[in-house]
Each structure stands twice: as C-alpha cells, then as structure tokens.
Simulated scan of single mutants.
Amino acid sequence: MTTVDDLWYLATRADQRAEQVHHRLTDAHDDFLERRHSRRVSRSRFRTLAERIAEFGAPYGAHSIVYRPSGELLLVWHAGVDMWVVPGGEPDPDESFRRAAERELAEEAGVEASYDGLAMNVRVEVRCDDYETWGVLPLFEARVEGETAPEPDDPDGEITDADWFADLPENTRDREDLQAWREFALE
C-alpha cells in the first residue's frame, strides 16, 4: 500500500492564501518596509506553519512595532524563545490582522497606541525537504505618547516582561529588521 503525502497539497493551499493576503495588505497600505526571511524547518514544524498559512495567510500572526516620539521601541520578553520580541500573535477566528495586533499589544504590554498603518511586511519562506511555502508577517506601526509604563498581562503566560529600548538588546529577535525599520521610518 502506498502512502500519499499531502504536504504538497497543503503547501499549494498555503501559497494561494499567502498570495491573497499579501495583495490585500499591500493594496491597503502605502509606504512600508518589505523584508524577506527564509527558514528550513522540521517536517512537523513545516506542517504546523503551512496549516497556519493556509488558514490565515501568516505563519506567526500579526505584530506591532510600537514606538515613542523619542524613538524608543517597545519590546516584550518571550519566555518560550528566551528573547526580546515585538508584541503580537495569531488572530482569533474572523479577526483582522490589525485588530489582532491591537489585542496582542494590550495583552502583552498593557499600553494603548495610535496605529499609523503597516510598518513592515515580511515574506516568510518555509522549507522542509522538497517542500516549500511562504506566508506574510505583517507588523503594524503604533505610536505611544508620553511615558506610559508597560504592564504585561499575557493570558498565555509566554510574555513575562515589557520595556522601552533606545538601543535594542543583542538578544532581540529580528533585530536587523527593527533597525532597518528605524532607519526607514524614524530618521
């Protein structure tokens, strides 16, 4: 008996969904930074990410680049990856990426921000063996006025701290992307 591997079909569905979401995002927003990442992952991780992309168009949900007029960026400590990251996560069913980014910011950092549009659109390419697919990672631009102190209240327990940074710590995930955005948008 031959086993049929459905990863090719899943990857094709994911590609189609990613293309739809990419066009919807880029058509709705102007003046944002585009980046590209490529990751080789295990077979089980590929399946998980391809399923997310097929459902949402995005492997990691939506995130916010939150800044103060002084140029400081808000980062949250993600215990699961042991790094500073931008706040964000997966959308709930029927929730837009922007609304998911806003909700995640409130949960993970407890701050209110004014959203200015799309800061960055990252194309995330995922590979495993002979399979590949891609999805988008939208990062929305959000501005906080004043000296608001972040207070994480993450229901998932993954985010344990939040703080403002003038200089990004070395252990910041996607540090180069954030530095590139700062140069693109703030300077």
Rank of each mutant, 00 (worst) to 15 (best):
T48H: 03
E55T: 13
R43D: 01
L105Y: 01
E147W: 15
G135Y: 03
R68P: 08
H37Y: 12
R47V: 00
G88P: 01
L49M: 05
H37L: 13
S114Y: 00
L137M: 08
R98I: 08
F97C: 13
D130N: 06
S70C: 09
T48D: 08
A28W: 10
R103Y: 01
S70R: 07
G57R: 06
T48Q: 09
A79D: 03
I65W: 13
L118A: 07
Y67G: 05
E104Y: 07
H63V: 12
P91V: 03
A109W: 06
R45N: 12
E102R: 09
R45P: 02
A62S: 13
G57E: 14
E95Q: 11
E132V: 03
A58C: 12
A149P: 14
S70Y: 01
V124N: 13
D156H: 13
S44G: 10
L73F: 12
P91D: 04
W134I: 04
V136K: 08
A79P: 02
Y60M: 09
E151K: 07
G117W: 14
R68K: 08
L33F: 04
V85K: 06
N121K: 04
F32Q: 04
Y67N: 06
E72G: 00
G71K: 11
M120Y: 15
P93Y: 04
L139Q: 11
E145W: 06
E112S: 11
P150L: 01
